[in-house]
Design a protein around this nucleic acid. Sequence first.
DNA 1: CAGGCGTGGAA
DNA 2: TTTCCAAGCCT
Length: 358
Amino acid sequence: MNNSIKNLLVWYQKNERQLPWRQTSNPYYIWLSEVILQQTRVDQGLPYYIRFTEKYPDIALLASANEQDVFKLWQGLGYYSRATNMLKAAREIVSTYHSEFPKNMNLLMKLPGIGSYTAAAIASMAFNMPHGVVDGNVYRVLSRLYGIATPINSSRAHTQFLVLTEELMSTHSPALFNQAMMELGALVCKPQNPDCLACPLQSNCFAFSHKQQGDFPVKTPKAKQKTRYLTYYVISVTTNGHAQFFLNQRKSTGIWANLFDFPSFETHQPLPFDQAIHQAIDNGLLPNDSFNITQVSNEYKHLLTHRILRARFISIQISGAIPANLIKSLLLINQTSLSEYPVPVLVERYLRDVKLIE
DNA sequence: CAGGCGTGGAA
DNA sequence: TTTCCAAGCCT
């Protein structure tokens, strides 16, 4: 097996993709890339990584950023708690650790948004400490290599695969070994149609010799997506030909935490138009009269990992007095400022369609 | 510890 | 169209 590992390392040095975070051992850049790449493909994350490093070239600059700027830069990447946690961690590192990442797994894992994977990635790639990274790639490579049937989304899997990883790592360079394992998973030992003929571990691989590549890794099925219906109220007031809109900042938990959108209701069943209007009035979103429905959008279907959202946007102009509730709980902003607010992709899509932005 | 949390690419 | 799922973390 040790020869196979050497094959793997040779394979990596020949086949690795040239990615900007591989040209450095600066823990700030390693960390940034790892957070961006959590559950995210390189192709999708790369432009974000470039923008972040350009705008915030070091951790002190990120720590001193305001939250909305960070969110705006993160917009479209998903899993928005990563942005919140990243900013918190940056500030903690600057204030508590004098802008230096702790060289210690336990301390790293205490930072928000840094779990066992990211901590090991920083420790190994930035400091070359012998900690194994166990991500989706490693699960896939090792489960096939050894025919391990432990469901990888079970709690004991992480411990089991971590032990194995660190045994295989042995005295090899942790940075090199970890990245080689992940790169092999990304380029060769892919989820579908693995390229086993190009694999440096082929001669030792259980799944290859038993033609069971498709049977590993084992994972227990996830709950099915649930459909939810979203009714948005795009409420505007126009004074002297100058349009303003009411924006809602979402709560700090749940979907799209801290992002901005329009006031809305989420229901388990489609909300008929009449009911949608009545509910809005009952909840103080609209006055009893003196408003005009100017448009009802087509349904937008927005897919999340765990949900199917069917959204409709109702455009409403208020002509009379503005309900006190709106002023109190929402932001009234100029149309020209809409593009400054970080919004979910669904809302961005709508805003472009109706030409409220760009 | 099961479930919540985004988005977009590939087959 | 549907399904899977990508360098996970938090509660």
